[in-house]
Computed example of a mutant assay.
Amino acid sequence: MSFNWEIKVANPVLIDGMSFRVRYKKKPNGSWLDFLPNPTTNIFTITNLDEEEYTAEIKTVCADGTLSTPSFLDSPCYGGGGGGDDDTPPLVNIHWTDMSSSPDKEYTTDNFNLNIAINATDAENDIVLTELEVSSNNVNWSVQSAITNQIVQVVGTKPTSYYYRVKVTDSKNNTATSNILSVKYKEVIVRDLQITNIQGVYPATCGNEGEEINFDIIGKPNEIVKFQMKCIEVVGHNFNFVINTDTVASAFTWGTVQNGATKDGTLTLNSQGKIGCNAKMCLRPCLNEAYSTATIEFTLYNSDGITLSNQKLRFNAYQDCNI
């Protein structure tokens, strides 16, 4: 005697280019046999089976050839009949619809919008309830919604982390819970050196300031920013240089600056991740130089020494004493 085993796969519904990869074996220790050709419909039949119980392994083959996590299904009692008293729980697994190999995703924008595919099977094809569960810590779970489709949309907003799983229940109240997918917020700090409000050149008294340049350093709140200044393209005499911030006068000074010289320093950003700076080039008093100009190259670094920004500022200064 033999029987035919009709298998109905509820999820996912196959579309063009998709199929199932199926193999089956006798329980408990039979050898796996491939069922060919790959089914391209959600209902297919394995024929001429011995009067034994069987297990089938089913994987979804996506249009690009990637495979889903397998689902396993047990046959009803041999002869293809009955099975009405089968208490075998259903099976369910989930994956991102883009078939990402990793179950974990990150988002860096204010919100995200993603889709999850659900693959659920049951020996008697009597799944009565499919629920999407969500957690923010992978510990405490709640039901977000009941699901009637094989694709479910999930959305979220920063900075929350989201964990998703699916629970299915059959008519005999047997349940199964899927694997877990996650979406976590990743903060991207944009640091830059912004140049604003260049004041221009103005005549100064002997030894006084020349051109001023205002700029902001923007980064992470309360961050200590490392920077280096390098003097290039000097015309005229050596000079002094000072940076005032919006909180500290003369927060950084550099005396007798020569061509090619460098100077390192640090500045601490405020709680909003910003500090305003005012840089001035000063001619040394009465050195018989009426004019001097130089380019100061600013380079910002993070705590790991990685360059974040590089900016060149051109300074000019005049004096009216010629001794």
Rank of each mutant, 00 (worst) to 15 (best):
W5S: 15
W5H: 07
W5D: 14
E6S: 15
E6Q: 08
K8W: 13
V9C: 03
P12F: 09
G17C: 00
F20A: 00
R23Q: 12
Y24I: 07
K25W: 05
K25P: 07
L33D: 15
L33R: 13
F35S: 06
L36D: 14
L36G: 05
T41M: 09
I43D: 12
F44K: 02
I46Y: 13
I46N: 13
E51Y: 12
E53T: 11
E53D: 12
T60Q: 10
C62R: 11
C62Y: 08
L67H: 05
S71C: 10
L73M: 10
P76W: 06
Y78V: 09
Y78C: 11
Y78T: 11
G83D: 13
G84R: 01
D87Q: 13
N93E: 07
W96F: 06
D98P: 03
D98H: 04
D98Y: 03
M99D: 13
M99H: 14
S100M: 00
S101H: 01
E106Q: 11
T109G: 12
D110F: 03
D110C: 04
I116S: 08
L129M: 07
E131S: 09
V134M: 09
N137T: 02
N138W: 00
N138S: 07
N149C: 14
V152S: 04
V154L: 03
V155P: 05
T157Y: 10
T160S: 15
R165T: 06
V168T: 09
S171W: 01
K172Y: 05
N173I: 02
T175D: 09
T175Q: 09
A176L: 01
S182E: 04
S182F: 00
K184E: 09
Y185E: 01
Y185M: 01
K186I: 01
D192C: 01
L193Y: 00
I198E: 07
Q199A: 12
G200W: 01
V201S: 08
Y202I: 11
Y202W: 11
P203T: 07
G207E: 03
N208P: 04
E211K: 01
N214L: 09
F215G: 00
F215C: 00
I217R: 01
G219H: 00
K220P: 13
N222A: 10
E223A: 04
V225Q: 02
K230V: 04
E233L: 05
H237F: 08
N240W: 04
I243E: 03
D246I: 00
D246F: 00
T247K: 14
A249D: 08
S250T: 12
A251K: 06
F252W: 15
W254D: 06
T256S: 09
N259P: 08
G260C: 06
G260Y: 07
T262S: 05
D264E: 11
T268E: 10
N270E: 10
Q272H: 10
Q272K: 14
K274F: 00
I275D: 13
M281P: 04
M281T: 02
L283F: 03
P285W: 14
E289C: 07
E289T: 15
A294P: 08
T295D: 15
F298Y: 14
N302A: 04
N302Q: 10
D304Q: 09
G305P: 06
G305A: 08
L308R: 08
S309N: 15
N310M: 10
K312S: 07
L313A: 07
F315M: 01
F315N: 06
A317T: 12
Y318E: 12
Y318Q: 14
Q319P: 08
D320M: 03
C321M: 10
C321R: 11
C321T: 15
I323F: 14
